[in-house]
């Protein structure tokens, strides 16, 4: 087609020159590139505006009476000087502990089984499929499970801190299994072979080679899942976390007795205050302040996880 439209040979030379020298002014190409960059730019912009928004809203609350806000509790008026996030912090703290105690060991052990032991059979496939599908189940559905098992069946319809903790542990379990399995898969087989070659048992190899090598990757995955659990609200709403008013407890926040009590958590405090803001606009600022605290926690955990990963990736080259 191109040939038929060409005329004399000088015409051809001209066209070739045009083609070659057009390189510098590839308008369409640079427009495309700019549009792609703009999509990333929008994400950056959103993040900046989002952070700006919560900080602008929440900063006055954080700076004027920070100490009270830290130690205060859920109240019915936003002007109450005893309004604060202490109950949310305690709830989130214990939920994080529950997740760490339950989901970490089970998740890592399951990953070890799948990568080191599992034979290629039906059972392994069923385990694998169920983990993959669990990872995609919406978090509210985990809330329904928790509501059914730990509230309706186990506790006569009463919500409790342990219900929230165990539900979130179940929620993050597949994430831990998948990230840990990935870390274990990255262990060079030469290390396993070397260890087997001098008569190590399977458990020796796992204990002395696989786990030490995979530890940074596993740690990154567990940290990410922990930050997910701390920020998650929907399952807690479903199992009946308290959004309104919660009577303050007496005694230490380390008291294990509160596992059986009604509870709230940082994201739930935020949800509650956002709802209250329709009635009492001052709660919006309080919610903003609580978000600053929650975001600081979550972003800190994520950053440590990402930095750990990058550090070890670079170290291993």
């Amino acid at each position: 087609m191109a040939v038929s439209t060409l005329g004399s040979s000088s015409d051809v030379t001209k066209r070739v020159e045009q083609e070659i020298f057009r390189q510098g002014s590839d308008l369409k190409g640079s427009g495309f590139r700019a549009a792609l960059l703009a999509t990333l730019g929008i994400s950056v912009l959103i993040l900046v505006v989002l952070l700006g928004q919560v900080i602008v809203d929440g900063w006055p609350v954080l700076t004027t009476n920070f100490g009270d806000f830290w130690s205060g509790t859920l109240r019915s008026r936003s002007s109450d000087s005893k309004l604060g996030i202490s109950q949310g912090l305690v709830g989130s703290f214990w939920i994080a502990i529950t997740v760490a105690v339950l989901a970490f060991p089970i998740g890592i052990a399951a990953a070890i089984y799948l990568e080191e032991y599992a034979p290629q059979n039906l059972m392994t496939r069923v385990i694998d499929i169920s983990i993959r599908n669990l990872a995609g189940v919406p978090s509210v559905v985990y809330g329904l499970l928790g509501l059914f098992l730990f509230v309706k069946l186990a506790n006569n319809g009463q919500s409790s801190l342990y219900a929230g903790g165990i539900t979130l542990a179940i929620l993050v379990l597949p994430i831990i299994v998948i990230t840990s399995a990935e870390a274990i898969r990255a262990v060079p087989s030469s290390l396993r072979q070397g260890a087997y070659g001098v008569g190590a048992t399977k458990w020796d190899v796992i204990r002395t080679q696989v786990l030490p090598f995979a530890a940074p990757g596993i740690l990154t995955g567990t940290l990410l899942s922990l930050s997910r659990a701390v920020g998650e609200a929907a399952p807690l709403i479903l199992v009946g976390a308290i959004t309104g008013r919660l009577a303050p407890r007496d005694g230490s926040f380390l008291d294990l007795g509160q596992f059986g009590d009604r509870f709230t958590a940082m994201p739930i405090v935020i949800v509650g205050w956002v709802q209250e803001s329709g009635r009492d606009a001052g709660f919006a600022a309080a919610a903003g302040a609580a978000i600053v605290v929650l975001l600081a926690l979550v972003i800190a955990m994520n950053s440590v996880a990402v930095m750990l990963r990058n550090y070890f990736e670079n170290k291993r080259g």
């Binding site: 060079p188 030469s190 290390l191 072979q193 070397g194 070659g197 001098v198 002395t208 080679q209």
Partner: peptide, 9 residues
């Protein structure tokens, strides 16, 4: 056993 590629732990 000694392997093809040196594989120190």
């Amino acid at each position: 056993m000694v392997f093809q590629k040196p594989n120190p732990f």
